[in-house]
């Protein structure tokens, strides 16, 4: 039987070169979705295969990798992807946002500001911001080519007419470099302003849909809105129950079946760093660390 032997960071070098070419093109045309020959990865489509391929293509032996899902380093899929690269690339991993050179994320942008030299790799399920307005790829590609984004504005306007607000709370569309309308991946709109003028390189990988796109450092990223209905961030109005932070995006934790709720930082690294710096919330406890086991 053919015993499989795998290359550094799993993908063969030819595939990595193909992906890097797509990444370079994506950086050259900010917000434009570059088709690439996405490979079948050893994890399911929809579970981060696009992000994994981008990370595999850019990872070098000296990189320090952080993987988060829902802002957290220890959700099961984040652990699974971190272990994958630990095993296939042997790179150093970290949970500290500031120490990482490559951060792969699903659904969040870290709270700590990113710095120059870092790369944020997003996992993207549906790269096409117009997909739910127009299901055909042939049509949406034409709309992007012509910069024909009226349909999106009509959708946002209809939300306001019906609900009084723009009823998009995540995957909120942005315009990149005053040209392409782009899906920021399903991050809450709270995170949208962090993409603007960001010193780090932002790469987006959609494996199943076979697209890569990018926001180069210090690019203008504007959330779509109207003059009389400006873009607003949403955050539950409470401090984090563990670290007391008043500026972080919060997860809602259901504590009992009698309406008990508490709100804690979704970014676990941010929350833990604040707690170790002595910040306390109403429910503070020393964060339980998973015991090492062999």
């Amino acid at each position: 039987m053919n015993a499989p032997a795998y290359n550094f960071a799993y993908l063969d070098e030819q595939t990595k070169r193909m992906i890097r070419r797509a990444i370079l093109k994506a950086i050259a045309i900010p917000g434009y979705q570059v088709p690439f020959a996405s490979r079948e990865m050893p994890m399911p489509y929809g579970w981060g295969t696009g992000g994994v391929q981008v990370t595999a293509a850019i990872l070098g032996p000296d990189d320090v990798l952080k993987v988060i899902d829902q802002g957290s380093d220890d959700t099961t899929n984040a652990i699974s992807i971190r272990k994958f690269f630990g095993k296939t690339a042997g790179v150093a991993t970290t949970t500290a946002t500031a120490d990482a050179t490559v951060i792969q994320t699903r659904h969040r942008i870290p709270e700590a500001p990113l710095h120059a030299g870092q790369v944020l790799v997003y996992q993207v399920p549906i790269p096409e911001p117009l997909r739910f307005l127009e299901p055909r790829e042939t049509e949406t590609r034409r709309m992007h080519a012509l910069g024909e984004y009226g349909l999106m504005h009509v959708k946002l306007y209809e939300d306001i007419a019906r609900f009084g607000h723009i009823a998009t709370s995540y995957a909120y569309p942005v315009k990149v470099n005053a040209r392409y309308v782009m899906d920021p991946s399903p991050t809450p709109k709270f995170d949208n302003p962090k993409m603007d003028d960001c010193p780090a390189l932002q790469l987006f990988g959609a494996g199943r849909e076979k697209r890569i796109y990018a926001i180069p450092p210090h690019t203008d990223v504007v959330s779509l809105d109207f003059e009389d209905h400006p873009f607003t961030r949403y955050r539950f109005d409470a401090p984090c129950a563990l670290c007391g932070a008043g500026d972080s995006y919060l997860d809602e934790i259901v504590t009992d079946d009698k309406g008990g709720r508490m709100f804690v930082c979704s970014d676990t690294d941010y929350c833990e760093s604040r707690q170790s710096a002595g910040h306390r919330g109403s429910e503070s406890a020393a964060p339980h660390k998973e015991r090492a086991h062999g």
């Binding site: 899902d69 802002g71 709370s169 991050t187 809450p188 709109k189 539950f236 809602e252 979704s266």
Partner: peptide, 11 residues
């Protein structure tokens, strides 16, 4: 997979 960040936004 967890979607609670987005779900929180929708909530």
């Amino acid at each position: 997979l967890p979607h609670y960040v987005d779900f929180q936004s929708e909530l």
